[in-house]
Design a protein around this nucleic acid. Structure first.
Length: 488
RNA sequence: GGUCCUGUGGCCGAGUGGCUAGGCUGAGCUCUGCAAAAGCUCCUACAGCGGUUCGAAUCCGCUCGGGACCUCCA
């Protein structure tokens, strides 16, 4: 595998050259959604970022096993390790089965991700499908003396673990500081240490989701599902583990601790974290109530939006920002991206009908090298896009006969476009498609021919009338050197 | 309070110790019957104050903003 891919590893806090444990195979685990309500845009950003990473690794020739879980159990409201989980709460509210909640939002999630043109993961395992595996890990951790049971609940012993391991390594925090800053819990606490977290939680009789276990009826803690499923499908140590930055301090820190307590091995070589989406500078989150639903974005049905934006526009918008930077969301920024994206894709169409010259005035191989350089530098899509706009300029100039491209140049440009725009960034031409558009194409050709005749006869009143009425109908006419073209 | 990130032109957003980011917007020009499209040019920014350096937006310190995590969240 010859490439120069470097990626930022949260563990070392710097960019490192990517070396697969067992090339050409790569194991990648990404923490997926908790399906108790609609996915919001922030989730989508994370999964689009990892989709990009998945696509680029595949493009480089790796055989990637991409595992992304569906969390359909556990997840209590708050830190008390008590009360209803999110599914039970919602199910009671709507008077349905918790699994109906799970089904509804799992399907919704997949539909949205498909609209965003993300590839499905290789395996999409669910927490409820791996209750046994989670119990096995909890048992082993107890055996290894890093966990203890109190009244049917199993807790991980963080202080014990810290004696031989660096618990806060992922966030560079010291145990003393963590202890210092952790809130004192209400008196009835049964945990030994205030940093201890639950591997298995005792269920009250009224709980709708509960399973038998060596410790009585209960349900799994939040973190253990990822330990169980990543180990099962990718092994004790695999290549890349990813998720949103908000998972770094708690979820991933605990996941690493569980894995080490379980088998003595750290789960992943590279930890990758994607940054948050913000709205007016504040993090977009379900609990803050400032989130956008993807469908609101597509329809424009939101107080902060002047109009709707297509899924590909949104994807392009996100690709214009590096995955580790926060991305501030605004109507103005989206509208800028929409225009830029259309210009990029228009040039893609122009490229298909470019005619070759005998000589070349541009260095296309260098452009291609720059594109790889950008992607190899921790998946730097903003820089990649900057290079692609250089290609846009070249293509449009060639179309205007202002620069010359050989057939080899044109073929290479096609390769660059197909590789980087379509395959790697996962953008596609949004077509209305079908027979209707075929017919429209013919009708438009007819109309433009009639207008060309009027122009040839200097009947500008007629040609302008045709153009104006087409514009009013939402069709833009562009007069070029070799006749007119149009688009919606 | 603790840990950490961040502050770039009208807006979004990359980046490196010295050499053009890019996109959107705005202005001008070319082309065009006119317009649109396209191309070219311009608007030359790096929070503030010190320091290191031949040279810093890029390194260090301080100040002032913004944000994240420490509680469920991608």
């Amino acid at each position: 595998m010859t490439h120069n891919l470097h990626l930022y590893n949260t563990l070392s806090r710097k960019k490192e050259k990517f070396v697969a444990i067992n090339a050409p195979f790569v194991g990648m685990y990404v923490c997926g959604p908790t399906v108790y309500s609609d996915v919001h845009l922030g989730n989508c950003r994370t999964f689009m970022s990892f989709d990009l990473i998945y696509r680029y690794l595949k493009h480089l020739g790796y055989k990637v096993r991409y595992v992304r879980n569906i969390t359909d159990a556990g997840h209590l409201e708050g830190d008390r390790d008590e009360g209803d989980d999110k599914f039970t709460k919602k199910a009671k509210l709507l008077q349905v089965e918790p699994m109906e909640i799970v089904q509804k939002y799992t399907v919704g999630f997949r539909d949205i991700m498909a609209l965003f043109n993300t590839l499905p993961p290789s395996i999409e395992p669910t927490a409820t499908g791996h209750i046994i595996e989670q119990q096995e890990i909890a048992k082993k951790i107890i055996e290894n003396k890093f966990a203890y049971e109190v009244n049917g609940t199993v807790y991980f012993d963080v202080e014990k673990y810290s004696k031989t391991n660096n618990y806060g390594e992922l966030t560079n925090r010291k145990l003393e500081d963590l202890l210092e800053n952790t809130r004192e819990l209400d008196g009835q606490d049964e945990k030994k240490g205030r940093l201890d977290f639950a591997l298995w939680i005792k269920a009250k009789p009224e709980h709708l989701m509960q399973w038998p276990s060596p410790w009585g009826m209960g349900f799994p803690g939040w973190h253990i599902e990822c330990s169980a499923m990543s180990t099962k499908y990718l092994g004790e140590t695999f290549d890349i583990h990813g998720g949103g930055m908000d998972l770094q301090a708690t979820h991933h820190t605990n996941e690493i601790a569980q894995n080490i307590a379980y088998c003595g091995k750290s789960p992943a070589n590279y930890w990758m974290h994607t940054n948050m989406l913000t709205v007016n500078g504040a993090r977009m989150s379900k609990s803050a109530g400032n989130s956008f639903l993807p469908l609101e974005l597509f329809s424009g049905d939101h107080a902060l939006l002047s109009k709707g934006y297509s899924p590909m526009t949104v994807r392009f918008f996100m690709m214009q920002t590096h995955y580790r930077s926060t991305l501030d969301f605004s109507d103005e920024a989206l509208s800028g991206s929409e225009k830029a994206f259309n210009r990029l894709m228009d040039s893609y169409k122009t490229l298909q009908q470019l005619s070759a010259s005998a000589t070349s005035s541009e260095n296309i191989p260098e452009l291609k090298a720059k594109c790889y350089e950008a992607m190899d530098d921790d998946f730097n899509t903003p820089v990649l896009i900057a290079h692609l706009f250089e290609a846009v300029r070249i293509i449009n100039s060639a179309n205007d006969k202002k620069t010359q491209l050989t057939q080899a140049d044109i073929d290479l440009l096609k390769t660059i476009y197909n590789d980087f725009i379509i395959d790697i960034m996962g953008l596609k031409v949004e077509e209305e498609g079908g027979k209707a558009s075929e017919a429209l194409e013919k009708v438009m050709q007819l109309v433009l021919d009639m207008r060309a005749k009027a122009k040839a006869n200097k009947d500008f009143a007629t040609s302008d009338e045709i153009r104006n009425k087409l514009t009013a109908a939402g069709i833009q006419v562009k007069d070029g050197k070799d006749g007119a073209t149009w688009n919606l």
